[in-house]
Design a protein around this nucleic acid. Structure first.
Lengths: 150, 150
DNA sequence: CTTCAATCGTTCGATATCAAATGGTTTGAC
DNA sequence: GTCAAACCATTTGATATCGAACGATTGAAG
């Protein structure tokens, strides 16, 4: 299992941990995906709606940062959400470089419909771990995710 | 940090763990990416070369399963690798439905060039955690990744 | 043998994703 | 005040990615 690479103990351990981390993230995503897709949304679209729902109207570069995507990508995702009437763009008056994105009533209804089941599905996924284990996992992931200067 | 969602303790914990897991995977990937890209490869292309390197020639559906991608996707990735002369396709004689993919000498040289540095980069990433923590993370991720029959 | 279901790779249409280039806008330095 | 640097969204061209439809091949059931 894990890796077939022959290396030092340290290397094998790091590779194994890396692979397990990626697999876990991919597997959980793959199992959560169908629910979101069943509402006709992609993961990115869902991410945008969810961010707007919980944080209020945001500029596109804020969404890009929040979702770890390029600004060009966000432009497209917003395009597709706007076409279907879930969000609305408005150019800022004070700083005309910015485009503020907000949920339409229709978009708000959609995310309100989806979100409770989404949370339930995540709770279900995480039920493979005890509360203690979940906290440990979160802590270790956080250490890994942090920007390391070097 | 984590989530802005107001829910039960269990829900907040699960959501927080989920977000941290996804962030960690994305962050590590994002930091590993530039190295691979500097060789003119995408992550998927690298994944294929690495699998062929360590496991030997494989059929496309085996690659798809290994990399958790659709068969249609693998077709395209192999197309692009083949165009550049890193892999070669050959139709199986016994079972003519199968297409076996193998590294060319050029492809082998490339992955041999890249891989050591890739391992070093992963070791560097994982150095944010102690050996003990890495093992714990791997174990918890493994529990999460496993298929759970409802 | 024949036929039918399963398997495998490809194609298609839609969306995602990035990096780089572009054009409009703002801000800071002078 | 002017101008250059920084910032923001969009566009473009390439690759990724999926699901679904498709055609070829195989295997199994009769």
């Amino acid at each position: 299992m894990g890796t077939h690479y022959k290396g030092t103990k340290e290397e094998v351990r790091a590779l194994n941990t890396y692979i397990k981390l990626m697999r876990a993230a991919e597997s959980v995503t793959a199992r959560l995906n169908p629910r979101i897709a069943s509402y006709g949304l992609t993961v990115s679209q869902f991410g945008v709606l969810e961010a707007l729902y919980h944080l209020g109207p945001l500029c596109q570069h804020e969404l890009a940062k929040k979702l770890l995507k390029s600004s060009g990508n966000i432009t497209l995702v917003i395009d597709n959400l706007e076409k279907r009437g879930f969000v609305r763009r408005r150019r800022e008056r004070v700083d005309r470089r910015l485009v503020r994105v907000r949920l339409t009533p229709r978009g708000r209804r959609l995310i309100q419909d989806i979100f409770p089941g989404h949370v339930a599905a995540i709770v279900q996924e995480m039920s493979a771990l005890t509360s203690r284990e979940q906290d440990t996992l979160a802590r270790l992931c956080r250490k890994l995710g942090l920007k390391q200067q070097k």
